[in-house]
């Protein structure tokens, strides 16, 4: 890193919502993520791009400690949310995941009613004092996910009965309902058709007003459409990070350039 970019990154850190320094992830002997220094800015959409197996999903899952669920997974380095170390021993994972929500690649609504899907998070965290408050949370989450109009007459029907795109928006509503600060999205549109994809991308753009969003995507076009900052990963290392426009029009690193122009990937 040059002195210029070093100074710039110092300034970035003050805006950073999620900040990583020298983060390494090991699956047993395999060194999956190497020395990642990355700052995610608040109220922005940051896209993580790179070829398969480059570690972007691994990094994503570090932020809300979903990697804890995997055996033999070791995370070193520091990763902080609003300045607080996420991997500190005193941190309650359950609380953390209420602040950092996640949407998965394949929509995974619970086999419950649409209402109960969205109400699940607020219920377990005790966020609503009575039924009326809960109703309001559910309705507003569904509305912000752009789903309310389509399902408001059938809230009791099972969430699994919706179309693929609707299911994913339901999962987004579910994640919003616990009022997180950060929403992580792991290739949220890869299982959806183009029309549904467009709807979700539109949603992401609306959501960034109130949430910080980190999205892993295989599609560079999607990254270009949706994000303000882009980070390019390759074989477990963070190669380059910068404003989306700059990355796609004027990448600094040869690897980045190679990936963007489709020479590999």
């Amino acid at each position: 890193m040059t002195a210029q970019t070093a100074a710039a990154s110092l300034a970035d850190r003050r805006l950073a919502k999620v900040s990583s320094r020298d983060v390494n992830v090991f699956y047993g002997e395999k060194h999956a993520l190497k020395h990642v220094d990355l700052d995610i800015r608040a109220n922005e959409v940051t896209a993580l791009i790179g070829p398969s197996g480059c570690g972007k999903s691994t990094y994503l899952r570090c932020i809300n400690r979903m990697n804890d669920l995997i055996e033999n997974c070791q995370v070193t380095g520091s990763l902080s949310l609003d300045g607080d170390d996420v991997y500190d021993k005193k941190v309650d994972v359950v609380q953390l995941r209420a602040r950092v929500g996640m949407v998965f690649q394949k929509p995974n609504p619970f086999p419950k009613s649409i209402y109960d899907n969205v109400a699940y998070g607020p219920r377990i965290h005790g966020m609503a004092r009575d039924q009326a408050e809960l109703d309001e949370v559910v309705m507003s989450s569904l509305e912000r996910a752009g789903l309310l109009a389509e399902v408001k007459d059938r809230l009791e029907e099972p969430g699994t009965g919706l179309s693929g795109g609707q299911q994913q928006r339901l999962c987004i509503a579910r994640a919003i309902a616990v009022s997180p600060e950060v929403i992580l999205m792991d290739e949220p549109c890869s299982a959806l058709d183009p029309i549904a994809t467009a709807k979700v991308e539109e949603l992401i753009d609306e959501l960034r007003e109130n949430f910080t969003i980190v999205i892993v995507t295989h599609s560079m076009q999607q990254a270009a459409r949706v994000s303000q900052r882009t980070a390019f990963f390759h074989l477990g290392e963070l190669v380059e990070v910068g404003d989306t426009e700059q990355i796609f029009t004027n990448p600094q690193h040869p690897l980045t350039q190679g990936y963007i122009t489709g020479r590999f990937g």
């Binding site: 609380q95 005790g126 966020m127 309001e136 919003i176 009022s179 600060e181």
Partner: peptide, 23 residues
């Protein structure tokens, strides 16, 4: 921070108590 106009978050003490119960 997400807008939660009509939603009043429980106080930190109540949250801690609830968490204890859950565990």
């Amino acid at each position: 921070m997400a807008e939660n106009s009509s939603l009043v978050r429980s106080t930190p003490a109540a949250m801690a108590a609830r968490l204890k119960r859950r565990y």
